[in-house]
C-alpha cells in the first residue's frame, strides 16, 4: 500500500552508485550530496512512472541530469564553488593497506591519484560514460538510457575516452 516503503526498497539501494556518479561529475562532496538528495526527491515524486522497470538507470538518469544542469550553471556563473578535490588529495590519509610496506602504499596511492586525475581530466560527457561503464558496470544500453543518447554515441564516447585515458596513463596501464 505504501509506495514510500516500496521506493526505499527499490531505489534507496542505489544511493552509492548515485553519489559516485554525482561526485565524479561535480567534483565536490556537498554539491554531489545536494544533487543526489534532490534527485531522490524527484524520483520519489515520479516513482509511479517507473512501474516495473529497473530503478538503477532510471535514478542515475535523474542524477546526471541534475549534475549537468548544475555544471551548465557553473559555466555561466563560474567561481561560486571551490572544488575540493585538491584539498581532499592532500588531506586524505591512505586508509587502505595498513601494515603494507610504505613503498607499496606509496605506489598504490600514486596509481590511484594518476588514474583519478586522468578520469577527472575528461570532459563531463566522456567522464560520465567511463564512470558508468567501468565503475558502475552498466551496459551500453543502460548508459544510453541514462544519458539519453543512442547506443552508437555511447560506444564512440567510450572509445574516445579510452584513447585519451591511454595517453594520460601511458606507462601505467602497460606492464601491470
Amino acid at each position: 500500500m505504501t509506495s514510500a516503503r516500496d521506493f526505499e526498497k527499490r531505489v534507496l539501494p542505489h544511493l552509492h552508485a548515485a553519489f559516485n556518479l554525482a561526485r565524479w561529475l561535480v567534483h565536490d562532496d556537498h554539491v554531489a550530496e545536494d544533487m543526489v538528495q534532490d534527485a531522490y526527491l524527484r524520483a520519489y515524486r515520479y516513482f509511479a512512472s517507473l512501474r516495473e522497470g529497473d530503478a538503477r538507470p532510471w535514478l542515475l538518469g535523474i542524477v546526471r541530469n541534475n549534475c549537468f544542469t548544475w555544471l551548465e550553471e557553473q559555466r555561466l556563473t563560474p567561481g561560486q564553488v571551490e572544488l575540493d578535490d585538491e584539498l581532499i588529495d592532500t588531506l586524505k590519509a591512505p586508509e587502505h593497506g595498513q601494515g603494507m610496506d610504505p613503498g607499496a602504499i606509496l605506489d598504490q596511492e600514486q596509481t590511484r591519484k594518476r588514474v583519478d586525475d586522468a578520469i577527472r581530466a575528461l570532459a563531463p560527457p566522456f567522464r560520465e560514460v567511463v564512470v558508468l561503464r567501468e565503475l558502475e558496470g552498466m551496459s551500453y544500453a543502460e548508459i544510453a538510457q541514462i544519458a539519453a543518447i543512442p547506443i552508437g554515441t555511447v560506444m564512440s564516447r567510450l572509445s574516445r575516452a579510452r584513447s585519451e585515458l591511454k595517453g594520460a596513463l601511458a606507462g601505467l596501464w602497460r606492464n601491470q
Binding site: A4, F7, E8, L12, L15, H16, A18, F19, N20, R23, W24, A32, E33, V36, Q37, Y40, L41, Y44, Q108, T111, R112, V115, D116, I119, V130, E134, L135, R162, L165, K166, L169, L172, W173, R174, Q176
Partner: peptide, 27 residues
C-alpha cells in the same frame, strides 16, 4: 587492460550515512 586498471584503482565515492538519513527523512 585499461578497464582493469580503472576498476582496480579509481576512487569509488561512497555516500555518507548522513545523506542516507536525510533522504529517508525527506521521503
Amino acid at each position: 587492460e585499461l578497464s582493469g586498471l580503472i576498476r582496480a584503482h579509481a576512487t569509488r565515492y561512497q555516500a555518507s550515512p548522513a545523506l542516507e538519513t536525510a533522504i529517508q527523512t525527506e521521503i
